[in-house]
Each structure stands twice: as C-alpha cells, then as structure tokens.
Amino acid sequence: MDARRVKDRLFALLVYIGAGLAIAPLFAILGSLVAEGGRVLLERGLAFLTSPAPYGIGPALYGTFVMALTALAIALPLGFAAALFLYEFPGSKISPSLRIIIQSLVEIPTILTGLFIYLLLVAPLPPLLHLYHALGLDRILPVNRYSGLAGALALALIILPYITVHAENVIRQVPGLYREAALALGATRQRAALMIARMALRGLLLALVLAFAKAAGETAPLLFTAGGGFAYMPPNPLYALTHPIGAVSLLIYDYAIMPTPTRIATAWGAALVLTLITLAAVLAARAVAHREIVIY
C-alpha cells in the first residue's frame, strides 16, 4: 500500500518536471530575446525599425509586411472558396481527395514550397516560360528574377491549407438550422453562404490574423524566392513586389552566424520585433476565440 503511494507521488513529480522542462525553453527564449534584443532596441531606439541594415531592419520589415499582406490577399479568397466547397458539397466526388490533398499541403516542408515557386516564377521551367511568353505574361510578372511577388506566392501556398481548414471549422460552428431556414425561404446557396459568413465573421477574421502571423514568421520559403536585400528601402509596394526584397526572418537567418557583433545584435533585435508581431497576433486571436465559443 505504501509503496503504491510513493510510486504515485514519484509519478506526479515526474509529470511536473517533464512539463516544466517542456515549457522552460519558452522562458529561456523570451529571456534571451528581451535581454539581447531589448538592449539593441534601447540602444538604437525607434530608428532601428526604419533604418537600413546592418544597423536597422527598415527594409526587411517593409518586405515582411508587403509579402505577408500580399500572400493573404492571394490565399484568403482561394482558401475561403475551398472551405465553402467542402461545406456546400460534402457528397461530391472530389471532396474526399481534396481533404487529403489539403492535409498533405500542410505537411509539405516549407523549403520545398519555396523551390516550387522558384520553378514557377523565379526561374520557370522551359515549357512554363514559353507559355508566359506566348501569353505576354513575362511583361507583367517578375519572371526570371527574385521578387517580392515570388515570396508572397510561396507564403500564400503555405497559408492556403491553414486558412481552408480553419475557415471550414468556423463555418461549421454556425448551426446548420440557419442555412436550412434560408434555403427553405427560397434563398440561393450563395445568398445563404453570405449570411453564414456574416455570422461567422469573427472566426473568419481570426483565421486571417493567424494566417498573417504564420506568413510573417516563415523563413525557408523565402530563401529562393524573395532573394533578400536589407540595405535598400523599396520606394513603393509595387517595386517591392517586382524586385528582390528582404524580410525580417531572412535577415535573422543571414545575420545569426555572422562574425560581426553589430550584425548579431541586429539579428536579436529583429528576432524580438518578429516575435512581438507574431505573439501579439496569436494571443489577440486567442482572446477573441474564447468569446467566440461563448457566443455559439
């Protein structure tokens, strides 16, 4: 009897230690970020956010926002439409395979997504290049060079499955009764869908915020698409989309193992800024989501 009690206590102790070890890295990382990154931000002030590398992250921050927002603009309509398809036509012949494909897209290593866009736009495969040429697209699209658009496309491809899954879950949370009532009153499917989307608006906005955070934090898909460049501020978003640009994540990757202390310091400052952006988005989304659950 006593031996069992002791064993029980020991097990509880192990659980506490294990869980502590699981969460400890978060505090270690946040501690390093605040200590190292905070020092850089204090030293260089707000100019750190606007000035060019190696002392600031202005152009990189600009690139991150331009690419993440463009990726949202591309992926949102596609993701919502795919989610609506799964919601409207659960019995269709395509739905089961579409589900599997979306799941597989989530799991594809992001570096491969970057290479895929590289083959589509940065250095298109010969047949694609001929196609672009025949359609005159090579005069509009930034073909054959690194560009913000290529980076945004890679990010869009990465957040697309997340948006689809999240949006479908949100739409499903609206009681089906509303949809049936609308259809019974003679509304078309699109009218009913619009109504349901309005009811689920908060959840859909949440999907948007989380997708933005994900897009802003990604690095690997930008390696061979955006091309980098942290010292020159693009004059406008269109220029950024058609020319090589940097991103905060890319800057950290480049500067993390540089031998110069200034650049490593810049990397830490950049990491603090990037963490604040993504954490703020995710924690805000969490707060909203809880009210969401209360409503439905």
Partner: peptide
C-alpha cells in the same frame, strides 16, 4: 507561435 527562425537563433 514563435517563428522557427527565432528558435534557430
């Protein structure tokens, strides 16, 4: 939510 590059750094 922490970006992977922050883990890397």
């Amino acid at each position: 939510a922490l970006p992977t590059i922050v883990y890397g750094l």
